[in-house]
Nucleic acid binder design. Structure first.
Lengths: 69, 69
DNA sequence: CACGAAAGTAAAGTATTCTTTATATTTAGT
DNA sequence: ACTAAATATAAAGAATACTTTACTTTCGTG
């Protein structure tokens, strides 16, 4: 899968580390890292949690970035 | 989790059965049924596949319907 | 350079999505 | 009422998201 640069950018704009974001949504740092690097396919619930923390919508963070398998 | 009525409605407006939609996105009929009834938490990839078939975006089908656990 | 914080990666285990098979119930058409 | 298609539900197994632990790399700062 492709890297999720929109997520990376949204996180950066909140000045949060992967660890901080991971803790805010209740997953591990490694899980956040894997999602950001496209190493796997998160659940909808987790995507929504991330959106809420970063004040974004699903379309803004997760649409069109996961198109290429 | 809550039922996803937006999904149900979008599917209905395309006149597709759960089975037809399931086949179009490559999952089983039971999986589609479970998602529609909120019995579990689909992967992002599957959500996006569903959106493409129904010509909707993530926000239109999956935002605000999965808020309550 | 040296130190610490942030990020990348990997491997084994657990939890949950998704499949398969099967049965029951609802809905629409005749 | 009868039939067929659609929907609901369940249980066991397979695939994969996610955790835990651990080690390495990168990058900014003293």
């Amino acid at each position: 899968m492709a890297k999720n640069l929109k997520l990376k950018s949204a996180r950066a704009s909140k000045d949060m580390s992967q660890k901080a974001l991971a803790e805010a949504v209740g997953v591990t740092r490694q899980t956040m890292n894997a999602i950001e690097n496209g190493d796997y396919n998160p659940s909808l619930k987790l995507c929504i949690s991330i959106c809420k923390v970063l004040n974004k919508t699903l379309d803004e963070l997760f649409w069109e970035d996961y198109l290429d398998e």
